[in-house]
Amino acid sequence: MNTRLIPLYKEAHLDLERCPSDANAGLWYDKFCNQWASNWSLGDNGKMKWLQSMQNGRVGDKDLLEEVLKRYIKLVKSLGGEVRFFRNITPFVTGLGRTHPIENGFIWHHNLGTPYLPGSSVKGIVRSWAESWWDGEENDDKKDLVRQVFGPENEDQKTVGSLIFFDALPVEPIRLATDVMTPHYAPYYQNEQNVPGDWYNPILIPFLTVAPGQLFIFAVAPRNKDQIRDLEITLNWLTEALGLIGGGSKTAVGYGCFKLVPDAKAKYVPEEHSAADPKNDMEKAPNSQEPERKLTPIQQEMEEDGYSTDANAFMEALTVKWLDRMEADKGEASESKEIAELLASWYKKNRANQWKKPTGKNIDKVQRINSILENYSLDKYK
């Protein structure tokens, strides 16, 4: 005789042992726990059986995920943003702190019925990495850039960061797995008079995870078109943060590590025109007749130092090389002028706040650049 109790009207009882393959797995997990005994308890066996009921193949509707993926990418691209694809290389779990009869909750996307990582969590992971792990060239620049990208830490300052972080969603139906925590020191945690000894029996606490090897899409977009310069470095932070500190819960013990999958972008992100499309060649033909703008020797050398591609590398080159060269008295007035103009333009694009109100080591650098510009009466750079 089945003695399990289900909190539904008798007419609505469902004799189901597993989550139906076409059901919303999140709704099933949160609302339809059916392992209650006659005394309204689950016990360890009931908890494990309930988690095993979630593992009926994969969760998530393939067609729905494909449709959402197309809209997701289209929205991000329309804002001038970029998407990145990552695969979790360790079990991934999020939302353990949510209340649930089995003691450990889980975060589900309400519409998709799949695990996901909220955009606010993605932003928090990247900010934590940038503040604690990223080795910026200069402390003042680092603080300004972090504040610019993520917004101020002080809630009294009503400003937002320059970038928008999107929810990380699964690209394909997700495979789930069951894991177990085994705390040994329950008597000690319950009463500090007890010794935290290894001889206590472990307590098995099962919980749900996303199995390794699942593909997710992450995205970041500039809030305004003129803030796109922050996008590249933030995407690098995202890759480093997900690979080294991870996302979700239990990251301190190795959960939630993700690895970038560059090849996935070619598969899932459609190009505006096919490479074999003759129309594409026709559209490019007029541009091919236009002469390319040649860089001056100074510009070429600066580009080699990372002028347009690596702000951190160029800041180092600016400090140890270009400022001294700008001030060198070699009778090359045009070279000094050109270097000062280029350094001013670079500062205004990559360190705008420091150009307007320099602090720390930037004070001397900005003053030296402005001194040269003033000598040539370049008022537009003041």
Rank of each mutant, 00 (worst) to 15 (best):
E153V: 06
T182G: 02
N139P: 05
A221I: 03
L373N: 09
A168F: 02
S377H: 01
G26P: 08
D364N: 07
L208M: 00
W237L: 12
H273T: 00
L163M: 06
Q55H: 03
Y116Q: 05
E192C: 14
E138T: 10
N34E: 08
G254C: 04
G26I: 06
W50D: 09
I107C: 13
T209A: 12
T159N: 11
D364I: 08
V253Q: 01
D329L: 08
A211V: 12
Y185I: 12
A313N: 09
N45G: 04
M48V: 09
V195R: 09
I73S: 07
Q214Y: 01
S377V: 02
V149H: 07
G161E: 05
K74H: 12
V122L: 10
A23R: 01
Y116I: 03
K356G: 12
N34T: 13
E272F: 01
W36Y: 08
T209D: 06
T209N: 10
Y29S: 14
E332M: 15
N370D: 11
A168N: 01
V93Y: 14
I164N: 02
S53K: 05
I125T: 13
G213K: 10
L112D: 10
K62S: 10
Y185L: 10
Y9K: 05
P152Q: 14
K361E: 04
L343V: 13
L204Y: 05
I363Q: 13
K49D: 05
N191P: 01
R98L: 03
V320A: 06
M326R: 13
N139S: 07
T3Y: 05
L16M: 11
Y189P: 01
K349N: 02
G119N: 14
F85E: 12
Y307G: 15
I89G: 10
Q157E: 09
Y72L: 03
P118N: 11
Q214G: 11
S274D: 07
N350L: 11
P286A: 03
Y347G: 06
D144P: 11
F32C: 02
L64A: 15
D198P: 00
A37H: 00
N104F: 15
C257F: 14
L238N: 09
Y185M: 13
K294Q: 05
E304W: 06
S162D: 02
K250M: 06
N39Y: 00
E232D: 11
P101H: 13
Q193R: 00
E103R: 06
R351I: 11
K225D: 13
E283Q: 10
H110K: 14
N39I: 00
V269C: 11
T90H: 09
T319K: 04
Y268S: 08
G197P: 13
E17Y: 09
K47Y: 00
A252H: 10
L79E: 02
V68D: 06
Y185T: 10
